[in-house]
């Protein structure tokens, strides 16, 4: 804390300087800084901002090969089509549903696991469990979906075998061929891959809770559960709120790789998300205008959610995300 305060006072002087107009001598003085950053600025403008021009396609009946002035402008026709299209409404439902499932499952499992990991007394074992739990995070979705498909397979899949041994099911289930299981499978895959990784930030927050609070709670005779409930959870509340808000902003982003890799013709109605819709209509069928419109819709909703999240976080007095 002291450190930041010190820096603030140091920063006061340059602040005065900042009010000075940009002069040639200043630019000359900083020419190395300019050479180091302006080319990178041009780079990001080219790769992140220039493509936004392509959004014009959503308001056209885009035909490849025609020049920009020859394109036919159709206004909001593509968007109107999207919102009356059963296909799009379905992928929207799937995206939202899987996004919400991932969000809730991801949060609850990570917090519970962090609380339990925190109770392991032997540092050595805690480290081992943590290291192992991080492992799936580093595997690609290709590998993870391969593992999921193998585990759920009807012949020799471990999930069917275990469930049958436990007499929960009689016959093996074709998990990946039935739509009703798909959202759950996606949620479980996310948990398997990320739960360990997601505990990192909670464990860091738990580690920063003043031990004196636990001691005081113990003297007052608090049980383990009470200490979790009244010391640990309030101690990491700020972290939870920040992460929750941030995740809400990204809720639409939770859907491409798993769904694309695990999905198949049989579960299409449950597996396809906005991103898959864009890929299918755009690159596979060449309906660039409709696909772009779908993409714009997703971006606009995402940005709105993120800005709202930011605003909420600020309102709640938590630190801003940006």
């Amino acid at each position: 804390m002291d450190e930041t305060l010190g820096k603030e006072t140091v920063a006061l002087h340059p602040k005065k300087r900042k009010k000075q107009p940009i002069t040639w001598s200043l630019i000359k003085n900083q020419n190395q800084l300019i050479w180091m950053s302006v080319p990178l600025l041009l780079y990001i403008v080219l790769f992140a901002y220039v493509p936004v021009w392509g959004w014009t396609m959503a308001f056209q009946n885009y035909r490849p090969g025609r020049s920009f002035s020859e394109q036919e402008w159709v206004g909001f026709k593509q968007f109107k089509f999207l919102f009356t299209d059963d296909n799009f409404l379905r992928v929207l439902r799937n995206t939202l549903a899987m996004g919400m499932i991932n969000l809730v499952l991801g949060f609850v499992t990570a917090i519970v696991l962090a609380l339990l990991l925190n109770e392991i007394r032997k540092m050595f074992w805690k480290r081992i469990v943590q290291t192992i739990s991080y492992l799936p995070h580093f595997l690609s979705w290709i590998i993870v979906t391969g593992i999921v498909a193998t585990s759920l397979s009807i012949n020799d899949g471990i999930v069917n075998i275990v469930l049958m041994k436990l007499h929960i099911i009689k016959d093996p289930i074709l998990w990946l061929s039935e739509g009703k299981y798909f959202w759950g499978i996606v949620g479980a895959s996310h948990v398997w891959k990320e739960v360990g990784w997601n505990t990192i930030i909670y464990l860091a927050a738990i580690a920063s809770i003043d031990p004196a609070l636990y001691e005081a709670a113990e003297i007052d005779g608090a049980s383990r559960y009470k200490k979790m409930r009244f010391v640990t959870l309030p101690g990491i509340k700020a972290t939870i709120v920040i992460l929750l808000i941030m995740s809400v902003g990204h809720v639409l982003e939770a859907g491409f790789e798993v769904q694309y890799l695990l999905g198949n013709g049989l579960v299409m109605d449950w597996s396809e998300t906005i991103d898959i819709f864009v890929l299918k209509y755009g690159l596979a069928q060449g309906n660039y205008s409709l696909a772009t419109a779908g993409g714009i819709f997703k971006t606009v909703v995402s940005v709105t959610l993120l800005l709202m999240a930011n605003w909420t976080a600020k309102r709640l007095g938590e630190e801003r995300l940006l």
């Binding site: 992140a48 493509p51 936004v52 021009w53 392509g54 959004w55 396609m57 991103d275 864009v278 890929l279 755009g282 690159l283 660039y288 696909a291 772009t292 993409g295 714009i296 997703k298 971006t299 995402s302 940005v303 993120l306 800005l307």
Partner: peptide, 8 residues
């Protein structure tokens, strides 16, 4: 915050 999207 934003990305132009796949097609662009």
């Amino acid at each position: 915050y934003f990305s132009a999207g796949l097609i662009p």
